[in-house]
């Protein structure tokens, strides 16, 4: 009988651990793995990947009807929304300050600080807070949020290569972490990490957003970027070793395959089933490529994906 020896890879590196959340409140730590996703025979996986619920500070204008109805009245206030997400088992809240966009209300830094305080009263989950992706407004609202939530160790964003100094400095001053986004290229992600660390940001205060493509919309590019970042980290490159954040919810739900109820081929099948699978399959594929923080939209997807993570984290004894 041939004795099969488990083909273990000896990795030199390890994913950077990042802790989020404040004193006396729930905390979440991600990263720390010394192996590829869920390969328990190969190394250690000290922390499971986590699920963040995407919450907006205003009722979403263009979300699919089945997501809107699943959240119901909670969508009317970010505090109620976050509270419901916590009840549904989210590990984190991903709060998007959409109303600060110049064309969505142009709300102020003071308003942003107030919103974040309300959300923190409603739930003790750790928060990721990002601006409306308009550089000046991002800086304005994130500076105010960082002040208001001093000591709560939020992850603040979105940091890009064109706009990183203010948010990084603010995060450092307030003891927060940042989310750094680069456009789907391993080297650009690494470059941005270096820029952030060069101005003094500690390595344990950085989460990478290497940009997500949804199923059918560039998912395979995101997959390969995630995998290459993770392989480089395990081979010992500390500047690619930050935990990865993935926008499976946002990217999936803006595609026709998730949204369209009519005017699509019969062969696409029932929209309610198809749309949820679109989000869940994007999430699972990218979790298995290296994502540690999975941002999702639909409560049912949060539930199903969490169940699958449970089963991937369970060690079922040796296979050989």
């Amino acid at each position: 009988m041939p004795k099969v020896e488990a083909p273990v890879e000896k990795w030199r590196g390890r994913v950077q651990e990042v802790r989020l959340g404040g004193d006396g409140r729930k905390q979440v730590t991600v990263g720390g793995e010394s192996t590829l996703p869920f390969l328990h025979f190969d190394g250690e996986i000290p922390h499971r990947p986590v699920i963040a619920a995407e919450v907006l500070d205003m009722p979403p204008a263009d979300w699919a009807e089945n997501v809107v109805s699943a959240w119901g009245d909670a969508l009317k206030s970010p505090a109620a929304w976050a509270k419901k997400a916590a009840q549904l088992g989210a590990d984190l809240i991903f709060l998007r300050l959409a109303s600060a966009h110049p064309e969505q209300g142009n709300t102020s830094g003071a308003q942003a600080a107030k919103t974040v305080s309300q959300v923190m009263e409603a739930t003790d989950l750790p928060l990721i807070v990002v601006g409306p992706d308009v550089a000046e407004k991002d800086n304005e609202v994130i500076v105010a949020v960082a002040e208001a939530a001093r000591g709560q160790r939020l992850a603040l964003g979105t940091v890009t290569d064109k706009n990183y100094r203010t948010i990084v400095a603010t995060a450092m001053a307030g003891g927060h972490a940042v989310v750094a986004q680069a456009p789907m290229d391993m080297n650009l992600s690494k470059q941005l990490n270096i820029l952030c660390c060069d101005v003094g940001l500690p390595k344990d205060s950085l989460v990478m957003d290497p940009t997500t493509g949804a199923l059918g919309y560039g998912m395979e590019y995101a997959l390969s970027v995630f995998e290459r970042l993770r392989l480089a980290a395990l081979q010992g490159d500390a500047m690619t070793a930050m935990p990865i954040l993935c926008h499976a919810g946002y990217e999936s739900w803006r595609q026709k395959e998730a949204k369209a109820v009519e005017g699509v081929p019969v062969s696409w099948g029932d929209q309610k089933v198809r749309s949820l699978l679109w989000e869940q399959m994007t999430a699972l594929t990218l979790l298995q490529s290296g994502a540690e923080i999975m941002v999702l939209r639909h409560p049912r997807s949060m539930d199903v994906v969490r169940g699958v993570i449970d089963r991937l984290m369970a060690r079922q004894g040796p296979v050989s």
């Binding site: 199923l215 059918g216 998912m219 395979e220 997959l223 395959e257 019969v266 062969s267 696409w268 099948g269 029932d270 929209q271 089933v273 198809r274 699978l277 679109w278 399959m281 594929t285």
Partner: peptide, 18 residues
């Protein structure tokens, strides 16, 4: 088997094997 699961799975396969 249903179209609503077949279409995303065929898309996944196409993506991964590109």
């Amino acid at each position: 088997f249903s179209p609503a699961m077949a279409y995303p799975l065929l898309t996944e396969r196409l993506n991964i094997y590109t």
